[in-house]
Simulated scan of single mutants.
Amino acid sequence: MSAPNKSYDPVEVEALKPEEITRMRDEALAAFAAADDLEELREVKVAHTGDRSPLALANREIGALPPHAKADAGKRVGGARGEVGRALKVRQEELEAERDARVLVEEAVDVTLPHDRAPAGARHPLTTLSERIEDIFVAMGYEVAEGPEIEAEWFNFDALNFPPDHPARAMQDTFFVAGPDTAAGRGATKQTETGIVLRTHTSPVQIRSMLDREPPLYVVCPGRVYRTDELDATHTPVFTQVELLAVDEGLTMADLKGTMDHMVQALFGEGTRTRLRPNFFPFTEPSAEMDMQCYVCRGDSVGNPDRPCRTCSSEGWIELGGCGMVNPRVLTACGVDPDKYSGFAFGFGIERMLMFRHNVEDMRDMVEGDVRFTRPFGMEI
């Protein structure tokens, strides 16, 4: 029996030739050197050191060689892969050092710069004034009530004794969202089948409060309202109202007058007087316009050309808002017995109140969002 022929090589593997191994190594080293950042280096790393890289595939071909040739081929492939691994590590360290140096420059923070270059803002004065008015009435035992800004006509008009042909219902005064036919198609109830509008006042909140609660009832209702007004110095299509409703046994106009006097003095100082002038509103009877004494001249400018007052135009009084005793028809619509209970209500615009208190001449300043307008009012807590 003859010995095995170790010199016979039945397989010649092209990928394991010395010149091929050298070429693969040199291509990997050149690719690493050409990578300009870590992202590119990660891409070429997979191409030259991954499982499908040329040197990895060549390493798999070693098994096809005869036993005596495997050791030499393994040394060549292993040496080349070792050089590639070391070159990769060196290049990665170089690129990481370059990245860290660049980050230090690009993201450097100059701690000598002023720390307050970003100007501080402030809460909007309409918000702080509205909350201050709420606090006045909450301290008197009232409850803050809210309601939807998209409202059914029944709540906005019908329940408040506005007849169907009242001018306030017209398109030139009210934003209509849906007509009666559309509302009825949505499965509306008797209270909502008249249509849907953007509320023109916060009085619908009073109606909802009377429907949801049993008397006695004391609520204050702030919120945004909508009317088709042009935006100018004294008007805006979106503004803020606050209304008050009290329903109890034995309430009179004297209770209304005393409540209003307390609010005015809390906002404008002790001794500020008010007066009532007869007027008409569908939802109150009797109704009145309420004026407050000018808080600047205290009436001294009236008939005195030497002391003119811009705030009240030397009339001595400033119109504040509408008020009156709740119309019995409104109480009946809400299920309240008008023979047992009476109530009073009043409402006014907070924008107008802000103009009075702080001599704001243009209502557009309140809605433009300029921090130069809000910052002088500061932050009230």
Rank of each mutant, 00 (worst) to 15 (best):
D362Y: 14
H201Q: 15
R224N: 10
P338C: 14
T374Q: 08
G74P: 14
A345Q: 07
H166K: 05
F175K: 00
V44F: 01
V242F: 11
F373W: 01
F283C: 08
R91V: 10
G185S: 00
F162P: 08
D36V: 08
D232A: 04
V105T: 14
E285G: 04
C334A: 15
P215M: 05
Y8I: 05
S313P: 06
N327S: 11
R307P: 06
L55W: 15
E43F: 04
L256C: 03
A170W: 04
K45H: 09
E315C: 02
L129F: 09
P180H: 13
A47H: 03
L160Q: 13
E270N: 02
R310N: 07
E39N: 13
I62H: 02
M263A: 07
L276F: 15
L57Q: 14
Q206G: 13
G179E: 10
S342G: 14
V330L: 12
E149N: 08
D158T: 12
V330C: 12
P164C: 01
E230L: 04
R275E: 07
C309W: 00
G322F: 10
D255S: 01
E96M: 02
R86S: 08
R99D: 09
R273G: 03
L113F: 11
P18R: 00
G343L: 10
D110F: 06
T374R: 00
E83Y: 03
E106Q: 02
R277T: 14
F239S: 10
E146L: 12
M210E: 15
E19H: 04
F377K: 06
E368I: 14
L65P: 15
P167G: 09
P286W: 05
V302E: 05
G50L: 05
C221L: 03
E39H: 09
E83F: 02
C294L: 05
P167Y: 07
P286H: 06
V302F: 01
S342W: 06
L256V: 01
D72L: 02
P18S: 12
F377P: 15
L55C: 13
N279M: 08
F239K: 03
T182L: 15
P164N: 01
F283L: 03
N359P: 12
M263I: 05
E153Y: 11
L113D: 08
R23I: 11
M253E: 07
G343R: 05
T22L: 11
C334D: 12
E12I: 06
T194S: 15
T127I: 10
A333H: 13
R25Q: 09
F155P: 07
C323A: 13
F32D: 04
V44K: 00
A333Q: 06
H115M: 06
L256K: 01
F32C: 01
T112Q: 01
D110I: 03
M355T: 10
G179N: 13
Q265L: 03
A58F: 07
P125D: 05
F281N: 03
A47C: 04
T127E: 06
G316C: 07
T194A: 15
E96Y: 00
G141L: 03
L354R: 02
D110Y: 04
R132F: 11
T128Y: 02
P180M: 07
V238R: 00
A152S: 11
A30N: 09
V296T: 08
E40S: 12
I21S: 02
E289K: 02
